[in-house]
Simulated assay, not measured.
Amino acid sequence: MSEKLFCDLSSDRTQERALVGEVGATLPDGVKLEYEARYAAMLSHAIKNYALLTYSGEVIVRGAAMRSSRSEPYGERFLRQALRCVMQGDLVGVEQGYQETLRVLRTRSLPASDVATRFRLSKDAQTYLAGRARQKEAQYEALLLAGRRQWKSGEHVRFYRASNVSIAPKNSSKVPLKKSPGLGNFRLALSSAS
């Protein structure tokens, strides 16, 4: 098991490493304390849910409360930008990033893949189709509406619900919208990786 300890130290790396050595020497056998890295800033949301700002300006986000595999790419970008601004004390930058995100959403300036939710498929096509009459699931219906009849469990798909639009598979021209009763309309951006 690995745990992380973050300390607010006003010292240099040599002093930090010395402190880690001193504390590590007091720990019981089998428990090891290592110096991993130092960061310019940290924002802690909850236990094991935090953001770090490296000295080179990179934002590292950890924990399910701070990010989700289903998050839309535009939201991930905004979150990272906002976290960077907060950790740098730039609240005006947070507001500007928020207003710019609203603008591109309202003007529909983003590609379909940027507003699509990512799902990992847990059922293969045969399993889903066998139970489809009992319960329809949006991610599989989006695949079917895009003309896909075969897929494997573990494959990833990105899609979003839309109204009064057409289905647009990633890197292809638009095709007429098909409706799925009870699930709404879909615009699809398929991806079998990442």
Rank of each mutant, 00 (worst) to 15 (best):
H156P: 09
E76D: 15
S163D: 14
S68A: 06
L83E: 01
T117Q: 13
L145Q: 12
S10K: 15
S10T: 13
A51K: 00
Q88G: 07
V59R: 00
M1T: 05
R62G: 09
E141I: 03
Y39E: 03
I60E: 11
Y98D: 11
S163K: 14
A162F: 10
G182K: 03
G63K: 00
V20I: 03
T26D: 09
A133T: 06
A40G: 04
Y160N: 14
V104R: 04
V92H: 14
R158D: 09
S2C: 14
E95K: 11
T14A: 14
G57M: 02
A133E: 04
A65V: 06
E22N: 07
S153Q: 12
G75N: 10
A40V: 03
S153M: 06
K123G: 08
S11F: 07
D90H: 03
K179F: 12
F119M: 06
Q126I: 10
A46W: 05
L27T: 03
F6G: 00
S180G: 08
C7M: 10
K179G: 08
V104N: 08
L52D: 03
A41D: 05
S192H: 11
A162R: 13
L143K: 04
S163R: 15
G184K: 06
Q150P: 08
V23R: 04
L144M: 01
Q96T: 15
R84P: 05
T117W: 14
L19K: 07
S153G: 10
L183K: 00
E137D: 07
S10Y: 15
A40R: 11
E22D: 13
A25S: 12
K174S: 09
Q139F: 04
Y50W: 11
D29T: 10
L91M: 12
L105H: 07
A138K: 06
A40T: 04
V92P: 09
G97I: 10
Y35D: 01
K136N: 01
Y39D: 02
K152Q: 14
T14S: 13
N49A: 06
A168M: 07
F159C: 02
L27E: 02
S11I: 15
L143R: 08
Y128I: 04
S192N: 14
A146V: 04
L145I: 11
G24A: 08
P176Q: 04
E3A: 09
V157I: 15
S56E: 12
D8N: 09
D8L: 09
E3N: 09
K48Y: 12
G131Q: 06
R80M: 04
G131C: 01
G75Y: 15
S153F: 07
V86T: 14
V23N: 03
R120H: 05
S113V: 14
K123T: 11
G97N: 03
Y50E: 12
Y140H: 00
L183S: 00
E100F: 15
G24Q: 02
L102A: 07
E3C: 06
G154R: 00
L145M: 12
T101E: 06
K32Q: 13
A46C: 02
E76T: 15
T101S: 07
P176H: 06
L83M: 00
S122R: 15
L33C: 01
K4L: 11
L190A: 05
K152F: 05
S10I: 13
L177Y: 14
W151T: 02
G131L: 06
S192C: 05
D12Q: 00
V157Q: 08
A133Q: 04
Y128C: 01
R161M: 08
K32W: 08
L102P: 03
V86N: 10
K178H: 04
R17G: 11
K178C: 02
